[in-house]
Design a protein around this nucleic acid. Sequence first.
DNA 1: TTCATATTTCGCCTTATGACGAAATACTGC
DNA 2: GCAGTATTTCGTCATAAGGCGAAATATGAA
Lengths: 105, 105
Amino acid sequence: MRKEPPVPAPEAVFKALGNPARLTLVRTLQGGEHCVCDLVEAVGLGWSTTSRHLEILREAGVVGSEKRGQQVFYRLTLACVPGFLACLDGAGAVRNFRPTSCGRD
Amino acid sequence: MRKEPPVPAPEAVFKALGNPARLTLVRTLQGGEHCVCDLVEAVGLGWSTTSRHLEILREAGVVGSEKRGQQVFYRLTLACVPGFLACLDGAGAVRNFRPTSCGRD
DNA sequence: TTCATATTTCGCCTTATGACGAAATACTGC
DNA sequence: GCAGTATTTCGTCATAAGGCGAAATATGAA
């Protein structure tokens, strides 16, 4: 069964990404889809907690899941996220040249 | 006195934007700089609460403030935010054509 | 059917958030 | 210096969020 995420509501997206564990999950998923087992290891939290975090990300429309066999695979579904993350990650580095800017001003 | 925001830490940025009042503040500031008095009205909360929200946004590196006369003006300083917001806002609209995408995939 | 593995749901507890009003602080004009 | 306006800081309180382990659910293998 495939669970498509709902239409992303901006506030929910930000709230979902505003947590270290969930941000780690998203960064991990930038490398491609992963089963929950991988993700549990990536965040270093319990299964139940990780599962809850994934649910929040899915409800926010950031990720989608698909069950294959006895495993559930998650992947990023909100394509603007990686670019924005890259901008934020880069923001510190560029800091001394000009106020943080990424493609617009 | 001008208060430049610190280097934005991704998690703090998301956390800062993951609140309806603060998202309203940011959307308001997309239209240009505003004094706190305007912003208080825009969010419809008390002065102390609004001030706290602005502080959080500033600490996250999303906005910067400058005092001119007896008023303090806030403005957006994180340039990648408007584009990302536009993507999120558009995500719903495009939903039926293809999975949410904004400039990459 | 029965068992093992993978994942989610539930209930509980602790800590973080968000709102308010009162008091403190900063700047202007008198 | 004193009063008035603009904003921030502080203390308090109610609610939300995040973590855990135990129990429930689903799938594949025997």
